[in-house]
Amino acid sequence: MGLTPLSQILSRYPEFARRLGSAVERDRELLRHPKVQEWMARLSLEEAEVLAASTEWWTWLEEEDACAACPGLERCPHRLKGYRAIPTREEGRFFFRYEPCAEWHKATDAKRRRRLFRLIGVPEEFRDVRFSDAEEDDGNREALRAVRKFVEDFPRTRGLYLYGTFGVGKSFLAACAANELVERGHSVYFVYVPSLVLELRASLDGGEFLPKLAELVQADLLILDDIGAENATAWVRDEILMPLLQGRTQAGRPILFTSNLSLQDLLENYLLGASDIEAGKVYRLVERIRSYADVYHVKGRNRRMRK
């Protein structure tokens, strides 16, 4: 007895026939899709190869539509959030390869930058500035070139001491250097000195003072922003500034200083109220900075004021 013709079977089961017809039409729709045809031509795929993975192809098309109107990594609807499927054929076998998308790389890079670039008391927007954003003029040209050279020679370089009046762009230039070095994979600690003093003082009770100080010594670059603006006590000088200078010079790790004060003014500021014994320690501190860092006067208009 022969097999029952398919037409008779379908006539007995109309719902099955309807579903079968829908499946056939959906397969035709898949094969006609421009994106599928593009990849079929690119990978020399046979129709049978595409239809064998039809479910994966339809998922891929849905995800491609979602990528075209990307809602961001947090709301990514893909099965593998932040990954994009790429039709692939290797050694005669077809499959979908998953690769991180641009948003995933952006988020990962942001995490990496936050891990490498740590701030204390410094505006978050400093994470985004670059040398291309700097306005060069007669007032800052020499300092700008020095900071660029500092980055080019890093880490085999002397420290820098940038000083000038409020708002001329000293911290901005330091941030440009920091971001360039972070891009190269270096770790940077950028600290506003008065805020650093408060944080380290608060860490004394919890036994975190020495570990925090060690982090500052070990970073590839330490930026001490607005040195001289802190309350210049003997404790700050002997327990924070001198250990940082001593530890980093011994390790060959540079410091980039910014200040509103010249080194002479910084010396006089630290000498205020100091005894004869204390004065000797102050001289040693400032002399250590002088011998360790090249000094540049940043001049010009107040760049923080609106034009």
Rank of each mutant, 00 (worst) to 15 (best):
D27L: 11
R28D: 05
R28K: 06
R28G: 11
R28E: 08
R28M: 07
R28L: 10
E29K: 15
L31E: 08
L31N: 02
R32Y: 14
R32Q: 10
H33E: 02
P34G: 12
P34D: 04
P34V: 04
P34R: 06
K35N: 14
K35P: 12
V36Q: 00
V36I: 02
V36C: 01
V36D: 00
V36N: 00
Q37M: 05
E38P: 07
E38G: 05
E38A: 11
W39Y: 08
M40A: 09
A41K: 14
R42V: 00
L43R: 03
S44G: 15
S44F: 12
L45K: 01
L45Q: 00
E46W: 12
E47V: 02
E47N: 14
A48W: 13
E49F: 01
E49S: 07
V50S: 03
V50G: 02
V50C: 08
V50R: 04
V50H: 03
V50N: 06
V50Y: 03
L51M: 11
L51C: 08
A52Y: 15
A52R: 09
A53G: 14
A53N: 09
A53D: 08
A53R: 15
S54I: 07
S54L: 07
T55L: 03
E56L: 06
E56F: 02
E56D: 10
W58T: 09
W58Q: 02
T59Y: 14
T59R: 13
T59Q: 10
W60R: 05
W60F: 08
W60M: 04
W60L: 11
W60E: 04
L61E: 07
L61H: 06
E62M: 13
E62L: 14
E63Y: 09
E64Q: 14
E64T: 08
D65Q: 15
D65R: 15
A66L: 01
A66V: 13
C67E: 10
C67P: 09
C67N: 00
A68D: 11
A69G: 08
A69P: 11
A69C: 07
A69T: 14
C70I: 12
C70T: 10
P71V: 00
G72T: 15
G72F: 02
L73N: 07
L73I: 00
E74G: 11
R75L: 09
R75G: 14
C76Y: 10
C76S: 05
C76N: 01
P77N: 03
P77V: 13
P77H: 05
